[in-house]
Nucleic acid binder design. Structure first.
Lengths: 146, 146
DNA sequence: ATTTATGCAAATCGTTTGCAAACCT
DNA sequence: AGGTTTGCAAACGATTTGCATAAAT
């Protein structure tokens, strides 16, 4: 997706939540868009050195609230953030390295995703659980750490 | 599995790692065994009031290290712990409630698990990633919070 | 007897928050 | 002007750690 369309979408989503699309928020979104993989807040601060740490924390919380970013919690020290799938049209899962903490993306074949979705729907119905989303991660060692 | 066999297995796994199976560790394992769902450390301390918080943190870390327990990280304040699947012979996944933080278990049909495993193996090979395990959780609202 | 585990209190560190100044509309 | 957002520094809270004592082998 082009950067302009992305920013337009983000602006709409923020406005729907009564928030403004400020320069700082734009920089955060740009950093996430530029990153190949989910990134930590220290990594964002390294790239966008003009941002205050507390503002990045606050803005990522707001961006998560309005559905622009997804937060990924691992056993690693820092949480990681990426643009929401809705914005990138890219359904994927994560490879989480237990050695270095890196998180990278991978995809499953569409027919596997369909199988999964039906199974999820059935399981959730049986437990009277209302699905908002799912997370499917592989835990192990990445190519760099092998 | 009977409690005795469980404790025997745990004792072996701890000894393999040069650790002792003390009373405190036994109490932690018993609490996990008694719990229907993955529990937080405050929940363990409520049940086993004689345990010191720091020892429970330390012992769960050791039990995780030797493969007796699995730690589940969610967006919730506290991590949750459960007995490792290897010990309970029970492969399952989690329903994570975004409202109250509760985590409960569910299972997928065996044929879905098989499909998933093949897909994982293929994806990991393509990324040169060595799988140690996976996590597959449904995020949403539990029956109590609907 | 020697090593490992415990309990307490203090330290750590990612994240959150209060508040006054700066910004947007 | 009237609200929101920012940056700084201080607060918070889950988890970790130092150290002297107790328990296990």
């Amino acid at each position: 997706m082009s950067a302009d369309l992305l920013h337009d979408d983000v602006a709409l989503m923020l406005r729907a939540g009564e928030h403004r699309y400020t320069t700082g928020r734009r920089q955060v979104v740009a950093a996430l868009h530029a990153a190949a993989n989910p990134v930590t807040i220290p990594q964002i601060l390294e790239v966008e050195t003009s941002l205050a740490q507390s503002s990045v924390y606050r803005n990522l919380a707001i961006l998560e609230e309005v559905g622009v970013v997804a937060r990924i919690v691992t056993h690693d020290d820092h949480a990681r953030y990426e643009l929401a799938e809705k914005l990138t049209d890219d359904h994927h899962h994560h490879l989480i390295c237990t050695t270095c903490g890196a998180v990278s993306d991978f995809e499953l074949p569409p027919e596997v995703e369909r199988t999964l979705d039906s199974a999820f729907t059935a399981s959730a119905a049986a437990a009277n659980f209302q699905i908002e989303g799912h997370r499917l991660d592989l835990i192990g060692s990445c190519a760099n750490c092998l």
